[in-house]
């Protein structure tokens, strides 16, 4: 095996293994984090880092072909829509009255939109 191919092989191994690791970490975070607001951050680890690294690894594996073009289109689409969807979920939660908890040592900022709504209760749990 010549040197450039070996380098590409090593790089794609590295990025795919790191991306897989980040995806599992985001799954663990989804389970470990205590409330909805922190879980959005755990989900965004897989949405940004894991997704970018896995797609980069697949691009390196397929070389300069149409497959790479499709993967890049897919990556750009996911980069744009992932944060938009996360923002939409968080915004919907805020609009219906769910407030994030502020850490004990911090002063909550005044004037949060929709803060006059009552805090909803969890139903059926």
């Amino acid at each position: 095996m010549d040197i450039p191919a070996l380098i590409i092989e090593i790089l794609s191994w590295a990025s795919i293994v790191t991306g897989s690791f980040l995806m599992v970490v985001s799954g663990i975070g989804m389970l470990r984090f205590p409330d909805f607001w922190s879980r959005t951050h755990a989900a965004s680890v897989g949405d940004s880092g894991g997704m970018i690294l896995l797609i980069l690894g697949m691009c390196l594996q397929s070389g300069l072909t149409l497959i790479t073009v499709k993967l890049i289109i897919m990556g750009i689409f996911l980069i744009i829509t992932g944060p938009t969807a996360t923002h939409a979920v968080a915004n919907a939660a805020l609009v219906t009255g769910w407030r994030p908890k502020t850490a004990e040592d911090l002063e909550p900022v005044k004037g949060v939109p929709y803060s006059d709504l009552p805090e909803p209760t969890v139903r059926g749990e």
Binding site: D47, L54, L78, G82
Partner: peptide, 26 residues
């Protein structure tokens, strides 16, 4: 426990599924 947790999970599951299908293709 709240409905937005589930929506968030569905969205993250979708991203994982997209990557899973692509990896399965390879």
């Amino acid at each position: 426990p709240i409905v937005y947790d589930r929506v968030l999970a569905v969205n993250a599951f979708g991203t994982a599924t997209v990557l899973f299908i692509a990896v399965l293709g390879f």
